[in-house]
Write a protein that binds this DNA or RNA. Structure first.
Lengths: 175, 175
DNA sequence: TATAACATGTAAATAGTTACATGATTTG
DNA sequence: CAAATCATGTAACTATTTACATGTTATA
């Protein structure tokens, strides 16, 4: 049981999903491609934490819909209560910043402007996710969606801090 | 040439360092243990980007002091100007937040309080690094230290945003 | 007519962590 | 007397990314 396994269980704790679905939704929780997800789903199924139902489709490829079991929910609940590890951020901009005196001032500005633009696009993306989660929270009782709400809010705050940094650093470069 | 290789070149661009030194200083740039660093230094040396001098010591183990070459500096300078990739954050707190409705409210609060405490300790650590870099910037001309200054400032802003999130989330839990 | 979305997998390569190995000196 | 710091390396394992593999339908 690695961290991604718990991520998949967490996503499945809200409702049944296919592997493809999970690979689309996992991004804010953990970065992983489908080639990592499909084998893990098999493992989780063999461990009894999830089950699947094969859904045959004529227009689209057949799919497997995975559902979390009681055992999986228990495993996840226990893990959620344990204290979290240290966050690890891998960002090559950090290295480029460190060695920025080697780049032409023009290139340095481009680097920060590009990151600022990326932050803005991320904020837009998260705004859509936030709209969705707020609909879900007002429609049904919504306690299952509270975590998603917290997470998106965290991501937004992280990206806003990043954007602020870029603006500040650009002004430092300018002067 | 992977990202860590550029991180090592960036650290060496400021001055000569041993592998041990690099493994201590690499943290804000990239997360890596010494077992990843020593083999990479051999590779970089064979590629001609760095050279080393063996320094024999009687009281402490012998060490290798690595110095960046013209070729290494050129390689680094080119890379620094290229646009940065997307940052990847791995934080199991995100998953725990997502599934927080499964935890007892007490445990949920503990999770956020522990992270807040971690953020405060990180801020203290960065304050020390900031004091050092400001000394370096005022003593010598300081253009070589500007990048380190930017980087530490970024790290501080990231951690401050994290701390703010924890406080906000705790208030959301409370109500 | 090419690309994107749907859908699931495996294989190969690279990256990263943890454990093994050694050994002196300093600090609590 | 135990733990930390200095110092360098390798081995084994785990995680992650990129490429290979296949096939339909809808959209631009």
């Amino acid at each position: 049981m690695n961290t991604l396994s718990y991520g998949l269980l967490a996503l499945l704790s809200v409702g049944p999903r296919t592997g493809y679905d999970l690979s689309q939704r996992v991004k804010p929780l953990w970065q992983a491609g489908h080639s990592q997800i499909y084998p893990l789903l098999s493992q989780l199924e063999q461990s009894g934490y999830i089950t699947f139902e094969l859904i045959e489709q004529s227009d689209k490829p057949d799919k497997k819909e995975y559902t979390i079991t009681e055992s999986g929910l228990a495993e996840l609940s226990e893990w959620v209560g344990d204290s979290a590890g240290k966050p690890v951020l891998k960002d090559d901009l950090h290295i480029k910043l460190y060695a920025i005196w080697l780049a032409e001032p023009e290139k340095a500005r481009q680097l920060l402007q590009a990151r600022a633009a990326f932050c803005l696009s991320e904020l837009e993306r998260y705004q859509l996710l936030m709209d969705n989660v707020e609909k879900d929270r007002s429609s049904d009782g919504g306690k299952k969606h509270f975590g998603r709400y917290l997470l998106i809010r965290k991501r937004v705050m992280d990206v806003e801090a990043n954007l602020q940094f870029c603006k500040w650093a650009l002004s430092e470069l300018g002067s």
